[in-house]
Simulated assay, not measured.
Amino acid sequence: MRQQPWSDAQAEHGRILVLSDNPISQAIASIATAAGRDVLVEAVDDGGEGLEPRAGDAVVLCDHDAPDAPRVLRAALASEAAYVAMMASRRRAAGLLDELVAEGVDVTRLHVPAGHDLGGKGPGEIALSVVAEIVAESYGRPGGPMRG
């Protein structure tokens, strides 16, 4: 009998909440949906009504220049979200991080830049690295090659 390398049993995972709507967030939604995750892309730059992280959710801020980025990050970092990330280089995110730290927000859980270092440059490749990091985190894994 041939063994299958996958399991039909689906683990329970939180949602992936993404702000805002752009090519990277659309690619995240496509890849994460294919991986069996529920995704909410909030198109409104102010965080809209939908970004209320629950335990186990992943929050990805795909636009660090969104008007309500600080509020979204504050709420995500104060929540029981399992993963909180921002698409930006550390240099570009420095001002926002400094603002949050000055307010007393603990940013140690914040993944900046979001994703694994795959070297990709296009929206789909960047999204793949973010979804890979979310999946790895949800299983308590560091990511990286499986070969030993």
Rank of each mutant, 00 (worst) to 15 (best):
Ala58Cys: 08
Ala58Glu: 03
Ala58Gln: 03
Ala58Gly: 09
Val59Gly: 02
Val59Gln: 07
Val60Trp: 07
Val60Cys: 13
Val60Gln: 07
Cys62Trp: 00
Cys62Asn: 05
Asp63Glu: 12
His64Thr: 01
His64Asp: 00
Asp65His: 14
Ala66Gly: 09
Ala66Asp: 08
Ala66Glu: 07
Ala66Trp: 08
Pro67Glu: 07
Pro67Trp: 07
Asp68Gln: 15
Asp68Val: 05
Ala69Met: 10
Pro70Val: 09
Pro70His: 09
Arg71Tyr: 00
Arg71Gln: 10
Val72Arg: 00
Leu73Tyr: 12
Leu73Asp: 03
Leu73Arg: 06
Leu73Ala: 13
Leu73Gln: 12
Arg74Cys: 10
Arg74Ser: 07
Arg74His: 09
Ala76Arg: 04
Ala76Gly: 12
Ala76Tyr: 08
Ala76His: 08
Leu77Thr: 11
Leu77Ser: 11
Ala78Lys: 07
Ala78Gln: 13
Ala78Leu: 04
Ala78His: 10
Ser79Ile: 11
Ser79Val: 09
Ser79Pro: 07
Glu80Trp: 01
Glu80Leu: 04
Glu80Val: 02
Glu80Tyr: 00
Ala81Trp: 06
Ala81Asn: 07
Ala82Thr: 01
Tyr83His: 14
Val84Met: 06
Val84Ala: 03
Ala85Cys: 12
Ala85Lys: 06
Ala85Gly: 13
Ala85Trp: 05
Met86Asp: 00
Met86Ala: 14
Met87Gly: 01
Met87Asp: 02
Ala88Pro: 01
Ala88Leu: 04
Ala88Tyr: 00
Ala88Gln: 01
Ser89Ala: 11
Arg90Tyr: 01
Arg91Gly: 05
Arg92His: 14
Arg92Ile: 00
Arg92Glu: 10
Ala93Asn: 03
Ala93Glu: 07
Ala94Tyr: 07
Ala94Phe: 09
Gly95Lys: 14
Leu96Asp: 01
Leu97Gln: 15
Asp98Gln: 14
Asp98Ser: 15
Glu99Thr: 14
Glu99Leu: 15
Leu100Ser: 10
Leu100Gly: 07
Val101Cys: 08
Val101Pro: 00
Ala102Gly: 08
Ala102Met: 04
Ala102His: 04
Glu103Gln: 15
Gly104Cys: 05
Gly104His: 05
Gly104Val: 02
Val105His: 06
Val105Gln: 12
Asp106Glu: 13
Asp106Gly: 11
Asp106Ile: 11
Asp106Gln: 13
Thr108Phe: 02
Arg109Phe: 11
Arg109Glu: 12
Leu110Pro: 01
Leu110Trp: 03
His111Val: 05
His111Ile: 00
Val112Lys: 01
Val112Cys: 15
Val112Phe: 03
Val112Leu: 05
Pro113Val: 08
Pro113Ala: 12
Pro113Trp: 09
Pro113Ile: 09
Ala114Thr: 03
Gly115Ser: 06
His116Lys: 04
His116Asp: 07
His116Phe: 06
His116Leu: 15
Asp117Ile: 03
Asp117Met: 04
Asp117Pro: 00
Leu118Trp: 06
Gly119Asp: 08
Gly119Tyr: 05
Gly119Arg: 06
Gly119Leu: 10
Gly119Ala: 05
Gly119Ser: 06
